[in-house]
């Protein structure tokens, strides 16, 4: 009985709160204004990390078995909501077929399994932190995964001399938002484990918008006329790693892919490292 009474109170107060909140004037919901660096620009310095399952599948997905039965529930695929605006990615028919093939063979084909550079936007929502280091002319982003790094040029835009894994990044500020135009990709990175992919015509426009002291809103508009029928957009919050001693650690992952890639070429009786 007492429980039910308490529930009733909670319900009433929730309703009241809702009423009060909806009565708050628009001014109180003005966009968050970020602290400034010495240059007067919004301060994005910090260690950030996505907290979602986009690296498994950008689109909405239910939990499912992982690829290694031995690892049981530890490496099963976690469920997640879509981070794609509108829910699904607008593939061209041929590309949709390829995505299906990719998905069926992802363990073999996903470049992350081999510890390859992740590309953009995937680098932002890998399950590892990254750090923004911001000075006047350049914004460096260091990713824990594979020591990947980008320097976003904040001066007059420049052109890449060649295609790359991490793209060629030119940035500018639009109000409090850092907008980064990324071009010159190769066709070898993926967006997730679910086989979502692109061609070398990929063009990504990222935006990083401070939304509170410890969160950013991250968006990426993805355009690739060889693969998609229209541009599409992903959106997610990024969270500051607020631990006192937070920092990037080493994740030099080539060594973790070696047995997979070349284990079958080992000498059958080959000795291991010398014992110390």
């Amino acid at each position: 009985m007492r429980n039910r009474f308490r529930l009733a109170i909670i319900a009433t107060s929730t309703a009241l709160t809702t009423l009060i909140l909806s009565a708050v004037p628009a001014a109180a919901q003005a966009p968050y204004r970020a602290p400034r660096t010495g240059t007067g620009k919004p301060d994005l310095n910090g260690i950030w990390q996505a907290l979602n399952t986009a690296d498994w599948d950008l689109e909405g997905h239910t939990a499912r078995n992982g690829p290694v039965p031995m690892l049981g529930a530890v490496f099963a695929e976690p469920p997640g909501l879509s981070v794609v605006e509108g829910g699904t990615i607008p593939y061209l028919p041929e590309a949709a077929k390829k995505r299906k093939e990719n998905r069926e063979n992802w363990v073999k084909l996903d470049p992350e399994v081999k510890c390859f550079l992740p590309g953009v936007p995937r680098a932002a929502y890998l399950p590892y932190p990254f750090q923004i280091v911001q000075d006047n002319d350049n914004i460096l982003i260091a990713y824990e995964y594979q020591n990947a790094v980008r320097v976003i040029n904040m001066k007059a835009p420049t052109k890449s001399p060649a295609d790359t894994w991490m793209g060629w990044s030119n940035g500018h500020w639009e109000g409090d938002t850092l907008v980064v135009d990324v071009t010159s990709f190769n066709d070898s990175t993926w967006f997730d484990h679910a086989g979502n992919f692109h061609s070398d015509a990929l063009h990504v426009v990222e935006s990083y918008t401070p939304r509170s002291a410890d969160t950013l809103n991250y968006e990426a508009t993805i355009e690739d006329p060889k693969t998609f029928s229209a541009p599409w957009k992903i959106s997610m919050p990024l969270y500051r790693r607020v631990e006192k001693d937070a920092r990037l650690l080493e994740y030099r992952c080539p060594e973790f892919a070696e047995e997979l890639l070349w284990g079958d070429l080992s000498k059958k009786s080959g000795k291991k490292e010398p014992s110390k």
Partner: peptide, 21 residues
């Protein structure tokens, strides 16, 4: 390349994209 944010210095070596923050 050296890039500085408040309280951090990033030292980025082109060779094998090594970066220490």
């Amino acid at each position: 390349q050296i890039v500085q944010g408040k309280g951090w210095v990033a030292i980025y070596q082109e060779l094998n994209h090594d970066v220490r923050v």
